[in-house]
Amino acid sequence: MLEGKFDEASLLKKVIDAMKDSVKLCNFNCTENGISVQAIDDSRVLLISLLIEAGSFEDYRCDRNIVLGLEMESLNKIIKNGNASDMLTLVAEDSPDALNLIFEDKRRDRIAEYSLKLMDIDQDFLKIEDMKFDAVVNMPSAEFAKICRDMKTLSESLQIIITKDSVKFNSEGDFGSGSVVIKSFTDLEKTEESVRITLEKPINLTFGAKYLNDIIKSTPLASQVTIKLCDKQPALFEYQLPSGYLRFYLAPKFED
């Protein structure tokens, strides 16, 4: 049996909000260590890997491994009915045909209970090895989100160029072009505002602005985003959870 209680529904609300526009159907794999999801978008350009470790829950138990096949839009409809500050408990039997979601108001005696039908989803679970990257950038997630939004107004592609101590986001469109340069920066008082660049080799890669604009829906999850890049390899965009992560592996665009 699975029983996972979040102190606040807001964490799962943000996670589902970040994923729902990229992937429609997901298997939520529940083990004693927590809940993990791996799903690839329909165009097979973006792979999402989610890990909510048991430590992200107030209480967590999962006696046997359970797979919950969930339709993200339906899950989102139910999740939106709960308040962000509600306690949220996920409950499923060992061979479940539904996932129960219980929202409890902390101040009042209000309990809202929902049941979501499960689906059989045929999905491969890939073993993603640790990858080696030539460049790693840690930067404020809100700053990254603004750059992705701004650059998308110019072009459907966004070029990321990394040299010694700066990252250049470059966009070449039909009616004009634009770029934003971010330099290494340490804010000792507000560490979440810092920009850190670790570089083995210079990087020049291009990505679809549409996918980056899906990825930045994770911004409310973490104050910093980690961007890991290497030539001829999927880029990794990572948002840390209190215990776990939400990762996006994005294919680069190649020259014609």
């Binding site: 993603i128 679809g208 294919a251 665009k253």
Partner: peptide
């Protein structure tokens, strides 16, 4: 441009 199924093939390469 995107190479079709590149990401899928990348993670299935072995």
């Amino acid at each position: 441009k995107y190479v079709q199924n590149w990401l899928w093939r990348y993670f299935h390469r072995d």
